[in-house]
C-alpha cells in the first residue's frame, strides 16, 4: 500500500478522531491524514501528488466555506480526478445528495456517519479499493 493515502475531511474534530482510530483499529489504514476544510485538503493534495499516488478521501459534504461539492469541482479543475477516490460521508443521506453525487466521476460511494469497523472491512472489497488490499 505504498502508493495509497487515506484522507478524512470533516469540520468536526471528534468525527476526525473517531475515523482515524477506527481506520487504525480495523486495519483499513495505519496513518490516515485529517483535514478540517476543503482548501487545506486541496493544498495538501497538490503538494503530495506524484505520478503513481492514489488518494482515498472521506469527504463531509456539509462544511462551512468550501463545501463538499465545491471541493469536488476543485479536484477536477486541478486535474486530480484521476488520482482521487472520494467517498461522501454524511450524517443523513438525502435523496437529493445522492442524485447530485452521480454527476461526479470522482465519487466512488456513500458512507454514513459514523464509519464503523464493519463498514471499513466491507470497503476493503470495494471495486476502487480492492487492488490495494490484495495480499
Amino acid at each position: 500500500m505504498k502508493n495509497l493515502e487515506v484522507i478524512n475531511v470533516d469540520d468536526d474534530k471528534m468525527v476526525l478522531f473517531i475515523h482515524e482510530r477506527m481506520m487504525k483499529h480495523s486495519g483499513f489504514f495505519e496513518s490516515p491524514k485529517s483535514f478540517l476544510d476543503g482548501q487545506e485538503t486541496l493544498d495538501y493534495l497538490l503538494s503530495a501528488k506524484t505520478k503513481d499516488k492514489q488518494f482515498v478521501i472521506f469527504l463531509d459534504v456539509n462544511m462551512p466555506g468550501i463545501d463538499g461539492w465545491d471541493f469536488l469541482d476543485l479536484l477536477s479543475e486541478h486535474g486530480l480526478s484521476e488520482s482521487c477516490h472520494v467517498f461522501i460521508v454524511t450524517s443523513s443521506i438525502d435523496a437529493a445528495d445522492k442524485e447530485k453525487s452521480e454527476t461526479y466521476d470522482e465519487v466512488a460511494g456513500f458512507v454514513e456517519k459514523p464509519i464503523s469497523v464493519d463498514k471499513l472491512h466491507e470497503l476493503k472489497t470495494h471495486p476502487n479499493l480492492a487492488d490495494f488490499y490484495k495480499s
Partner: peptide, 24 residues
C-alpha cells in the same frame, strides 16, 4: 431533523463504538 439532529447522534454512535471496541 435530518441534518442537525443526525450530526450529534452520529458522533455519539461513533464514540460509543470506540469505547465498545476498547480502541482508546
Amino acid at each position: 431533523q435530518s441534518h442537525k439532529v443526525r450530526s450529534p447522534v452520529s458522533r455519539i454512535l461513533g464514540m460509543v463504538d470506540l469505547i465498545k471496541h476498547k480502541i482508546c
